[in-house]
Design a protein around this nucleic acid. Sequence first.
DNA 1: TTAATATATGAATACTTATTCATATATTGA
DNA 2: TCAATATATGAATAAGTATTCATATATTAA
Lengths: 115, 115
Amino acid sequence: MNCDHEQLHHLAAQAAKENMPAEEAIERVAAAFKSISEPSRLKILFALRQGEMCVFHIVEAVGGTQSAVSHQLRILKDNHIIKSRRDGQNIVYSLADEHVVAVLELACSHLNCKI
Amino acid sequence: MNCDHEQLHHLAAQAAKENMPAEEAIERVAAAFKSISEPSRLKILFALRQGEMCVFHIVEAVGGTQSAVSHQLRILKDNHIIKSRRDGQNIVYSLADEHVVAVLELACSHLNCKI
DNA sequence: TTAATATATGAATACTTATTCATATATTGA
DNA sequence: TCAATATATGAATAAGTATTCATATATTAA
């Protein structure tokens, strides 16, 4: 190994090792991002920006089958990206917190795309 | 379909449909999140928070084989999460822009985890 | 130009995950 | 209690992807 900034990079590598988050934290972050990294699930999140909705209307908004949407909702909920409450026969879903919208908007500004 | 907020949810569904980003934009956002949703790649990003580093030192910081790290770097670069420049025999990598750190920090505050 | 070093990459395999289909559960109204 | 409606879920298949291994490319020093 031999580069102009060898010393500098080595220090950065050492610091990186010391400050590396615990494996468990990394896996949680990874799981959270993974859950918002599928087009079908992103559509659900973009839909829920308009306000809470029950499954029937989410299906209406994003397309696909009820079963597929339901599976995706579960993944989003397990990862605390969305939350739900029962309202009679319906389950009403909404975004878990403001971080979700914030992170979507950051991604879009990073990519220069309108949302 | 029949729920207390039927009218309200229906309006949200209509609005969601109208404001749904284009398929192409959704796929770009999805690809960007996908690229930061694997533990091995997240480690690289956390490492690069300490500053730019060449591949040798990234491997040192995150573990794994040179080949695996190199494949992961390519995915991150293709998705504009990191950038690179050549420095003699070395390729020096760094985070593409401040959005990357910001999105990582948002995720962590969402999950209440230290980074 | 050759050897050594740093990094990248194609192909194969193993693993992960999305979707579908069939069916189960839960709530409501009759 | 029964039928209808809304939602969830297990299993199977299909599609996607991480890692490994072998090797290629690029740069430097001799």
